[in-house]
């Protein structure tokens, strides 16, 4: 039992971080970022290149992932999403663009990093063992705590910094924020960069534990969508709750349902559909997004 909870918390911390980036981009620009999973994979490969190929410390790899992905997010916002949002008749058009970016990143990852599964050498050796009740390698514990620290840092940033306040205003009401003198274009760009950066950071963290491969992008996006549906799209607390709930469900499901074959995700999906039938806006979302 303790083991299941520990696994769930570890998974949940990573998931919440992925969902945070997605929900931030959604709340600011009303864009459903299909490329989020690919950004996550890209971040993982950047860390891999820096750490395993160039032999630099893991922290440098993480920083490189963060910087490169943030730059990628900013470029995507300024040169792709902004012009399309301004000129398109329906705001759903950005979905095509996001899907195009997802395909594009997949192609770039394939060409630059190849299709092999990649990982970096263990950053910490040893296994934590509490009386055979919780067994967890130290590197997983470290990654879990790093993820939690990043979540806390992100919330603090959104809550107390000037930029964070501007972005929250933007998410609440774009027009009103603009009238209050918030530079909408600038903060949209920063928000997109920040969201992409979070995806890249999780990729960098995960490459140290489970490794990363090209095929992980799409499924990660689907999982991230589920998390923000559970919690409510565009709500930061919702994304965190969704991430932890999904992590916990996965951990419990894999243990309890393993006797019935590979049906954990089927059960999770089905219960999500039932849940949404009763509460369409998720746990904490505002009705109709």
């Amino acid at each position: 039992m303790e083991q299941i909870i520990a696994n769930g918390l570890y998974l949940g911390a990573q998931y919440a971080l992925i969902a945070l980036g997605l929900t931030l981009i959604f709340s600011l620009m009303n864009v459903l970022n299909f490329a989020h999973g690919q950004m996550f994979v890209f971040g993982g490969f950047v860390t891999y290149t820096v750490v395993a190929k160039a032999g630099l410390p893991f922290v440098v790899g993480l920083l490189a992932s963060a910087v490169i992905l943030a730059a990628m997010g900013a470029v995507a916002e300024v040169f792709l999403f902004r012009p399309v949002i301004k000129r398109s008749k329906r705001d759903e058009s950005t979905m095509l663009l996001a899907a195009g970016v997802a395909f594009f990143l997949d192609a770039v990852i394939l060409l630059v990093f190849g299709e092999k599964q990649r990982g970096v050498p263990k950053i910490l050796n040893g296994v934590f063992n509490w009386d055979m009740r919780i067994i967890m390698p130290y590197d997983r514990i470290l990654i879990g705590f790093l993820a939690v620290a990043l979540i806390v840092a992100f919330i603090a940033f959104m809550q107390y910094s000037r930029t964070g306040r501007a972005m929250r205003a933007l998410a609440q009401d774009r027009m009103a924020a603009q009238l209050m003198g918030v530079d909408v274009d600038r903060y949209s760009m920063i928000g997109f960069a920040l969201g992409a950066m979070l995806a890249g950071l999780v990729g960098g963290l995960l490459v140290a534990v489970t490794g990363i491969n090209l095929g992980m992008g799409g499924p990660t996006s689907v999982k991230a969508f589920m998390m923000i549906m559970i919690g409510g799209a565009g709500v930061i607390s919702g994304a965190i709750a969704g991430g932890f709930i999904l992590g916990m469900m996965e951990s419990v499901g894999l243990t309890l349902l393993s006797a019935y074959g590979d049906i954990t995700y089927l059960v999770i999906f089905a219960s999500l559909m039932v849940f949404l039938a009763f509460r369409p806006q998720g746990l904490m979302g505002k009705p109709w997004g």
């Binding site: 009303n30 459903l32 969508f225 923000i228 549906m229 559909m273 949404l276 997004g289």
Partner: peptide, 19 residues
């Protein structure tokens, strides 16, 4: 699910494919 709108409906239908 048709009570949902916008991205919520989009995401649910995406999940439906996986289901």
């Amino acid at each position: 699910i048709l009570r949902l709108r916008g991205v919520y409906f989009a995401m649910v239908t995406l999940v439906l494919t996986e289901v």
